[in-house]
Design a protein around this nucleic acid. Structure first.
Lengths: 310, 310
DNA sequence: TAACATTATTCACATATGGAAATAATGACG
DNA sequence: CGTCATTATTTCCATATGTGAATAATGTTA
């Protein structure tokens, strides 16, 4: 069809071939094929002259519009690739969303104003394919080996409790003290429903304890809130509780005991044709967490002021 | 593009392949090629699930419109072929147009109401390619061997004169009588400018005479008019002067002398894909002239009443 | 968790299409 | 009218694409 349009415009097969950077026999063949397909003669031609038939003229008008639409569609796909734009579906654990990612987003949008982010905020690891998620930030063990996982940093969990809780229960001196007379905030996997043990280490010594609790949650922000409410000892992400400690809303417990490092990744499906917006987002996230800038914007006011249970 | 649309609609590659009556690997390949062309992943798929990417969804919407337009265009070309319609450019010698073809056209349009005829009425044989003429009716020798010539009939030229002319000049008894004391209406070729001799035969005897004239024309209808005006002896198409003879507007001269038969053809360019309207028109013309019906509708009132020169 | 059915993809060969060189056709020019 | 330059088409070989069979992958089921 495009060859036909060029012949009509150029007036000769040879010139059309030149315009299309195509051999002349190919133009001949394409026109013949099109005429065979339509079962209509589109061009009356001799070696010296080419005349468009009435059928050919009618077809040309409409073909031109079609080709224009096709070029426009190709062009818009190319533009969308060259200049990152469009919607991106991202999944983030909730406390990382609230304390690290969201406060940094103004920087992202200043850089990529044409991108729209749909943030899934949940501790439950989603199925990227099933839920059409472009990428997800994950902490801890990776469960889906089919995804590409790019490492963006690591954090540790730190033991803390609200001041009011410690006044009522006392300050523990050793991890095993938590097994009697104390409560922890429990955390269970949103995926499996199984509770996560408290894992802590000091030098060569380490414990993995299933501790008594009054409340267990499967959302990292709710977890933090429960700790601030004085419901028990928490083991929360260190960069996130840091400002709360500084504000006196939480007190560090067993300071020499930390969890093993938790590696953070951003994961996405393998794809020969990674969209440019996904690529730039992944790069931006890597830079954000890698540079340690992820928690710089943390805003304590995002959570309600802690109110002791008693 | 069409394979992609079918996959989106069918939800699986296999079903799309069935819908398209195409092998499954071909669908795979086509989708891969399209993704490579656009440099974008359009479908996230596993063996069990196919999900459309946001890019894929956007592309699908627009591709659907394009495919619809293309199908519409293909369909309209097919319909135009299946049901004869559209414009046809036809060239006809003037007297055949006025006396034979035009009066019969109501029959043609009753049969093919969707066809529009552009009639070129001229005795000059046009270049079909140069002037985008679909077909032409020709009498006498064919000059362009590249055209397809379908024979539609034959006519003879008959010698006639107006009654007033014969009163003034007398009635010739032999062809050679025309060389002295008589005048003929001359006819010259609109193509070459050369005059046509009077050609007549009786049994084994024949003459080709260059006769004296006061007026020569290159249009067969003007020729007839000049004869009716009493300007000379004419040699006109027999079927056309017949009603004029019956009306007494012309008198036959040298009745036993007629021209050699003149064969009528309809000519058109060779074409593997003859448009249906041209095909039906050619067939209709062949039937019209072949059945002798061409002159049945002749209307003498098309010409002004003869007015003798004196 | 293993077995199995279903479905997308890959591989190797068959078929269709593309392209260089040669040929045929057609106007222009002297 | 013959010669010649230009241009569309054909021919034959090279390359690309299509397709059947085999393989790999993925969910479902017991």
């Amino acid at each position: 069809m495009r060859a036909f349009a060029r012949v009509v415009e150029a007036g000769t097969f040879s010139r059309a071939a030149d315009l299309l950077d195509m051999p002349k026999p190919t133009v001949t063949k394409l026109i013949q094929q099109l005429e065979a397909h339509l079962r209509t003669k589109l061009l009356n031609r001799s070696t010296r002259r080419v005349a468009v038939t009435p059928d050919g003229a009618a077809y040309y008008e409409r073909a031109l519009a079609l080709l224009s639409d096709l070029d426009e569609l190709d062009g818009s796909m190319a533009r969308s690739q060259a200049s990152p734009s469009g919607r991106l579906r991202v999944d983030v654990p909730s406390s990382l969303a609230l304390y690290a990612l969201i406060p940094a987003l103004p920087d992202f949008f200043a850089r990529y104003p044409e991108i729209r982010l749909d943030l899934g905020v949940t501790d439950r690891p989603v199925d990227l394919l099933a839920e059409n998620v472009d990428c997800a930030i994950r902490g801890g063990d990776l469960i889906d080996p089919t995804l590409i996982a790019r490492r963006i940093g690591e954090v540790r969990l730190m033991l803390c409790a609200a001041p009011g809780y410690l006044q009522r229960h006392g300050v523990p001196g050793h991890p095993r003290d938590l097994q009697q007379g104390h409560r922890v905030i429990g955390y269970f996997s949103a995926r499996t429903g199984r509770r996560v043990a408290f894992d802590m280490e000091r030098g060569e010594e380490s414990y993995e304890l299933d501790l008594p609790y009054d409340v267990a949650v499967n959302d990292s922000t709710a977890y933090l809130a429960a700790g601030l409410a004085g419901l028990g000892v928490t083991q929360s992400l260190e960069p996130i509780v840091r400002p709360l400690l500084a504000a006196g809303l939480l007190v560090r417990v067993l300071p020499e005991w930390n969890s093993a490092p938790i590696v953070l990744h951003i994961v996405y499906a393998p794809n020969r044709h990674l969209s440019s917006r996904l690529r730039v987002f992944v790069d931006w996230i890597a830079e954000l967490f890698g540079s340690g800038g992820a928690y710089r914007h943390a805003a304590p006011s995002l959570l309600l002021p802690a109110r002791p249970a008693g």
